[in-house]
Design a protein around this nucleic acid. Structure first.
Lengths: 143, 143
DNA sequence: GTTAAAATATGACAAAAATCATATTTAGGA
DNA sequence: TCCTAAATATGATTTTTGTCATATTTTAAC
């Protein structure tokens, strides 16, 4: 339901939230190591996020990836949606089709509460707020 | 987190719960079609479940798969565990390591409530109870 | 016992996801 | 303006997952 790629992307974005700014861009090679994801792999993911304006980047010397103030207002669900396909996300965790509150499949009531909560939580907090938790010692890195 | 194979297995088991008994075994070819899963594929999955005693089977003429009374007391989590690896199941939905209540990663509180609920729900109801929901019109098939 | 009907075991093949490699484009600084 | 440092684009390779095929074993019925 949530791919490995998404998880890597989340790691990278949180890393950027904590360590980058418009004047302090970070190159892929300096992101890959601390978050423990292969460089070529995370590069591809970051490029995709940049293309969708979820993170920012500039090329050339002194270039790199960073989060603008606007970017920091984004949420985790945005990241996951960008990497995984929309369909996968909306699918029931057990991918049952034609299944809803009115005409539930036998598993609907088993699955749907957790899905509802997950979706809500994934978009409630901003990237910025999540990074604050780390600064305040309420949460810990590395992931 | 929950593979396609698991979902197919669940479908098949629910089908067996509704249509089979010790005196009424069902051959793979008669399961594959109604649940809309390739025969050779579901066969492999059912064999795995049978090996782990989550469902029952006998070979030869008049043979087939079925659920014993004991089998019907099982839950969905058993099925999923048998097909997907233990590690995958226990992993955080975002597969963050070394992450717990005391030392949560930034996403822990976003993820863990939904995971807790899912795990609980997956083992609360028995296969039998789920099949009753269908008989009573509280839930609907096919999935 | 022999036969036929079923599951079982094994493994080949295909598709998708994850990983890695390389050539191209852009931007800053000498 | 030219060189170099960075992202970007593209796509090749590997691994995992899903799908299919076939030979073997077991069991019931005659």
């Amino acid at each position: 339901m949530i791919s490995n790629s998404s998880k890597y992307a989340i790691k990278a974005v949180l890393y950027l939230a904590l360590h980058s700014s418009e004047d302090d861009k970070i190159m892929v090679k300096d992101i890959a190591e601390p978050i423990n994801v292969p460089q070529a792999y995370i590069a591809k993911l970051l490029q995709e996020l940049a293309k969708r304006n979820l993170i920012s980047s500039t090329r050339g010397p002194k270039g790199g990836f960073y989060l603008s103030e606007e970017d920091k207002k984004g949420n985790i669900l945005n990241i996951v949606s960008a990497i995984d396909s929309e369909k996968k996300l909306n699918a029931c965790i057990l991918s049952l089709e034609h299944c809803n509150e009115n005409k539930p499949c036998p598993l609907h009531h088993i699955i749907s509460p957790s899905k509802t909560i997950l979706m809500k939580n994934l978009k409630t907090k901003t990237i910025y707020e999540l990074s604050l938790d780390v600064k305040n010692g309420k949460a810990f890195l590395p992931l």
